[in-house]
Amino acid sequence: MSILSGKNAVITGGETGIGLGIAEALSAAGAKVLIGGILDDKGRDAVAKIKGKGGTVDFVKVDVRDGDQVDALVQAGVDRFGRLDIMVNNAGVFDGFASCLDTSESLWDKVIDINLKGTFFGCQAALRRLVPQGSGRIINTSSVGGLRGAADGASYTASKFAIVGLTRQIACTYAENGITINAICPGVIQTEIRANSTRILGEDAPKMAGVGADPDGYKRLVPARRKGTPSEVGDLAVFLASDHAAYINGQAIAIDGGWTAT
């Protein structure tokens, strides 16, 4: 029997990159998955990919900045699958390493609203279902940029540090309700986050610094001297969503090829 057989999951930002890697991994482990995302075309592609491997999956367009939309997404998961067991708050955008002085108020607001407020809304919507049933898993996507100050830009770093703090506060509050909540902190992962963030942020998107400048520069930071893959992050999410991780709670777990060990 697969490790997540009989479990039902909702994931925001599951149509691309790390989110898609997590959605694929949850499905492969036996979970039914509802993806919520802002990119319709990517969402359709994700559903086709997972269904092609025999998974049970659907996609709902959602703007995580809107709490009502996030709550409706979670309720759609309950309506489709019968209950919620796993909530993954992954939707996020990158700020292109924009410094404090280079960060406009509009860019700040969009990054914080999508990354942090979206995670808060996802946690809130999940807890409304998980607390009454006395069980469940919440997984939030933070970043190495939520553990170190020199990894990313100002707004992205602020949002990811805040996700770690939110995760720990909720973990302490609801542990007695049979719920665990942890944060995954990826390092350098092979995704298209810069291109997708530019598309989502629109006119507020900064120049995505670092693209093409030194494609191997990360090797100076990462002892493994390679980028991680979305599927490797997905494997960690599967473990945290499983019964094997029942006593792991309130943690910010780096998956970074050793970056934070240096």
Rank of each mutant, 00 (worst) to 15 (best):
R128W: 07
A158T: 15
I170A: 06
L130M: 15
L127P: 04
I50S: 01
L127A: 13
K110Y: 04
L101R: 10
R65Y: 03
I86K: 05
C123L: 09
K110R: 12
Q169G: 04
V62C: 13
F97P: 00
A46I: 09
D85R: 03
G52N: 00
Q124D: 10
D85E: 05
R65Q: 13
V64R: 03
F161Y: 14
T103M: 10
G55H: 08
K160L: 07
G54S: 06
L84C: 09
R137K: 15
D68C: 08
C123Y: 01
N140A: 12
I86N: 03
L147H: 00
N115G: 04
T119A: 08
G122E: 11
C100N: 12
K61V: 06
D66E: 13
E105C: 11
G136L: 13
D66S: 15
D85W: 03
C123K: 01
C100F: 14
G96V: 10
A162T: 09
D45W: 07
S159F: 08
S135Q: 14
K117A: 02
V60F: 11
D109S: 12
N140K: 14
I86Q: 01
V74A: 07
D68K: 15
L130S: 02
A91N: 11
V57Y: 04
G52E: 01
R128D: 09
W108M: 08
K49V: 05
D58F: 08
C100Q: 13
I86L: 06
W108G: 03
G146W: 01
K110N: 09
Q75I: 08
A76E: 15
G54D: 07
N115L: 11
G77P: 07
G149M: 09
T157H: 00
Q75C: 04
D113P: 04
Q169E: 09
T157D: 01
Q69C: 06
I50N: 00
R65N: 07
R83T: 14
L127I: 13
G67M: 13
G77E: 09
S99C: 09
V93C: 04
K51R: 15
D58H: 07
G165F: 06
F121R: 02
A154D: 10
D113T: 12
V60P: 00
A91K: 13
V164F: 03
F120Y: 13
A126F: 14
G153R: 00
K61F: 00
A48Y: 05
I50M: 05
A158L: 12
S143F: 06
V111T: 04
A46D: 05
D63I: 10
S143A: 11
N115P: 09
V74I: 15
I170W: 02
T141E: 02
L84A: 03
F94W: 15
G145R: 03
A72F: 02
Q133Y: 10
A151D: 12
L107N: 04
G165S: 10
T103G: 05
L73P: 05
V164Q: 02
V164N: 11
L107C: 11
G82T: 11
P132I: 13
D45N: 14
A125S: 15
L73N: 03
